[in-house]
Design a protein around this nucleic acid. Structure first.
Length: 209
DNA sequence: CGTTCGATGCACT
DNA sequence: GTGCATCGAACGT
């Protein structure tokens, strides 16, 4: 009997065009439960990576051992190590055999903020709360997500995405950032003006808007 | 304020 | 051997 308590998104949510999933993930909540505790944050920034024709998508070279999750069923986590030190988390979209995913780039911290702070501790001091999950490498560190969570089913289990009714707006769109190729495709989505969105810092008083 | 650059591991050619 | 879907310290202005 399906429990009403579970607000986890169903597989049908992910089995849709990737740009739509990227948009609709804004406002959803990424949750990671570990024996250290639970940490969760609202998704405020995403990017779509779609198919072998997208030069920035990991599926661009065709199937390889690393990108195998992209070719599998939707609603599954695809996690990989980037620059030798940061784990990045994607959600697989569309359908098996059609490699595509959405990269989760930033969260607004909601739950387990003290746990996030412990995980993010460094010698030069604690990041401010809005910065704890600002950036794709930072959010996995704050949530304790590693390669061990690769291929986990996001519709149930320890790593999941839930709908808790948040509907932040407005949602902006623009080119993906941090990549060398495929920058022409405006496949990034983010909550306009949100403090936890990555990329260049917003101006204080002068200009920008 | 801005830009540059080193860290660090591995998938892929 | 090359090049990253990054981060933040260090340095220049």
């Amino acid at each position: 009997m399906p429990t009403r308590r579970s607000r986890a998104l169903a597989r049908a949510f992910y089995a849709r065009p990737t740009l739509r999933v990227a948009r609709d993930l804004i406002g959803m909540v990424l949750v990671h439960r570990t024996n250290e505790g639970t940490a969760a944050g609202m998704i405020v920034e995403t990017e779509a990576y779609i198919g072998e024709d997208d030069p920035a998508c990991h599926a661009a070279p065709g199937p390889t051992p690393r990108n195998a999750p992209l070719y599998g069923p939707p609603g599954v986590a695809y996690i990989y190590l980037n620059y030798g030190m940061h784990y990045l988390v994607n959600v697989v979209t569309e359908a098996a055999g059609r490699p595509a995913a959405v990269l989760v780039r930033a969260l607004e911290p909601l739950e387990g903020i003290d746990l996030m702070e412990r995980r993010r501790t460094r010698n030069a001091g604690q990041p401010a709360v809005p910065d704890l999950c600002r950036g794709p490498g930072n959010l996995t560190k704050a949530l304790g997500v590693t390669l061990a969570e690769n291929l986990l089913d996001l519709t149930r289990g320890a790593l999941r995405i839930e709908d808790r009714g948040y509907r932040p707006s407005p949602v902006a769109r623009g080119p993906r950032i941090g990549i060398r190729i495929g920058v022409d495709r405006p496949w990034r989505r983010w909550v306009s003006g949100h403090a936890s969105v990555s990329g260049p810092r917003r101006r204080r008083s002068s200009g920008q808007w």
